[in-house]
Nucleic acid binder design. Structure first.
Lengths: 133, 133
DNA sequence: TAAATTCCTATTGACAAAATAGGAATTAAA
DNA sequence: TTTAATTCCTATTTTGTCAATAGGAATTTA
């Protein structure tokens, strides 16, 4: 599985925020109810989105989150990356993992690099606004 | 991660068999040495390839495996699928998993369906022969 | 008969994903 | 000024899958 609940939850939060653009700050409680996810679990995704600067947060009563730019200016790729860390289809293409010793001679690596490009091209071509129908 | 060592090993076996097409049966021991993988681990991948009819096996001394059709007639997709079971980018698109209750209203599902198509189109367009340089 | 092989089943270890928990810090509103 | 609602922080637990190993049975050629 390439995209886990972390990435999916990040995307759900963003879609919900986009659907309520202009309503000021939206609380995670509201989002959790609408998206039928646990508040506690969404909190970790929201924290990552906030750390990445994709959303603006406000603490305290009547606080919550809102988008930091128009929905059409977010790519799906950047949102998923904030939740997943990496979208590489194989571990040897993740920056975090140790470089593979056989990379020079591996006959399958070029294929996986191409696949990675195909995936990233697609996810970079989709915006958050595209997901609202 | 979408493609694990199971899929990668299946592909490595097939590439090695393709590189030795016409040499008769090739033993897993030879493949394990060339690809620097453990014999025991490759065995499970080979068994799946055999069960799927992608290779022909011969038991006993001087036995081994060989391709069941020309290398150019295999898609990379079918090989990876034999190792992975599913190449779906999200669990809710796997046949094996229980259907998602929110599928009707989920705003992210259409995107993931598109992504799945993009991936499968690419992997179906590549043949085993393409991997030999 | 011996050696080389695929085949079968089971088990273990390691790690990541998934989910939950409790409470601290903050802030608007009553 | 207090209270309630919220984000924020850290930790823990549970669960599941991946990865790898192990031992031996069945088969077949030399």
């Amino acid at each position: 599985m390439m995209i886990t609940t972390k990435g999916r939850n990040a995307l759900k939060i963003m879609v919900d925020l986009a659907a309520h653009e202009g309503d000021g700050y939206v609380s995670l409680n509201d989002i959790a109810e609408r998206q039928k996810e646990s508040l506690k679990y969404l909190e970790s995704s929201a924290a990552q989105l906030s750390a990445a600067g994709l959303v603006v947060s406000a603490r305290g009563k009547s606080g919550g989150y809102k988008l930091s730019k128009p929905a059409k200016d977010y790519t799906v790729a950047e949102i998923l990356l904030s939740g997943e860390g990496s979208l590489a289809p194989v571990s040897c293409l993740e920056k975090s993992s140790a470089p593979c010793e056989n990379a020079q001679t591996c006959m399958t690596l070029p294929l996986f690099k191409e696949l990675d490009e195909v995936i990233m091209n697609f996810l970079n071509s989709k915006t958050l606004a595209d997901l609202l129908q």
